[in-house]
């Protein structure tokens, strides 16, 4: 049975080449001396230098990070609440609609979410006079709405694996439902909440379509800035920016992988400890 699946290994090699050649090419060309983004003109780091002195890019990055942190945090709170509610309360009035509302944004095409949010904000301004202007607030609200359901999915999946008895034990020992949640439920599902936050953060930081519909003058996020430049074609400074973003994210994912490996090793050590403690 232990034959080498040569065909599968070849396909894996091709697949990974397909995944990474475009990104590597982009990284290489970010060090291109030439202004023509696709013709090699020698090695240079001048595009990186010009990137950091570009105040527009820096401002957009800061705005994007601000929106991503705020929206991911609120989305995580709301999404966790929804995930716990769906996993723990089997029956309540309007559960069907609620679970529908939690899944619908996952499959709704972004362009529809975008125009519906925009029309909503415009009509709202028409009816109650708020929001007078679209920008930071409206983008954040829209990001919270469509990223919270991703958090819900992650949290709900984790909750359905958790031992219900742990919560009952806390209740049995005198804790009220809200104390149980803070003392037991949240600490136990904390890793899921963290990955939910990271997911929401990434989604917000990456979003173009919904942001482009819900933003207003003066509120250009980094993806929007890239979008407006990319529409005009390939430029070396975008290559440099892309390289930086890919490297940062790549390092983050690798780091997360190392941390996960570490905790797996710790779990194995604990198991050995548990075994030895029997003596």
């Amino acid at each position: 049975m232990k034959r080498r699946p040569m065909f599968l290994i070849t396909m894996l090699a091709f697949g990974f080449a397909f995944f990474y050649i475009p990104i590597l090419s982009m990284i290489v060309y970010s060090f291109n001396e030439s202004r023509l983004a696709t013709v090699w003109g020698g090695f240079s780091t001048k595009w990186y230098a010009s990137l950091f002195s570009n105040r527009q890019v820096v401002a957009a990055l800061i705005l994007s990070l601000k929106i991503a942190v705020i929206s991911a945090t609120i989305a995580t709170i709301l999404g966790t609440m929804a995930g716990i509610a769906l996993a723990r309360f089997r029956k309540f009035r309007g559960r069907t609609l609620f679970s529908g509302l939690v899944t619908a944004p996952l499959i709704m095409p972004e362009v529809i979410t975008g125009i519906s949010s925009l029309m909503f904000f415009i009509m709202l301004a028409e009816w109650i006079g708020w929001p007078a202007q679209r920008g930071f607030t409206t983008v954040t609200l829209a990001h919270i709405t469509f990223s919270m359901v991703f958090v819900t999915t992650v949290v709900q999946a984790r909750m359905s694996q958790a031992d219900r008895a742990i919560e009952e034990a806390a209740m049995d020992l005198g804790s009220r439902p809200w104390q149980v949640m803070f003392d037991v439920t949240l600490p136990v599902i904390f890793p899921a909440i963290m990955s939910g936050w990271l997911l929401a953060f990434t989604i917000s930081l990456d979003d173009v379509v919904i942001t482009s519909f819900t933003t207003g003058p003066g509120s250009t996020t980094l993806p929007l800035l890239i979008w407006s430049k990319v529409k005009l074609g390939v430029t070396p400074d975008i290559n440099a920016l892309a390289t930086l973003m890919v490297v940062v994210v790549g390092l983050g994912v690798v780091l997360a992988g190392i941390i996960m490996n570490r905790s797996a090793a710790r779990a194995r050590a604990d198991e050995r400890m548990a075994y030895r403690s029997n003596e």
């Binding site: 031992d163 008895a165 009952e168 034990a169 209740m171 136990v188």
Partner: peptide, 19 residues
């Protein structure tokens, strides 16, 4: 309510708080 009862339980799975 469970939290007001002077009754405590030892669960089959023990339900120890892992954290």
């Amino acid at each position: 309510q469970p939290w007001d009862r002077p009754v405590h339980m030892m669960f089959q799975s023990y339900a120890l708080f892992p954290h």
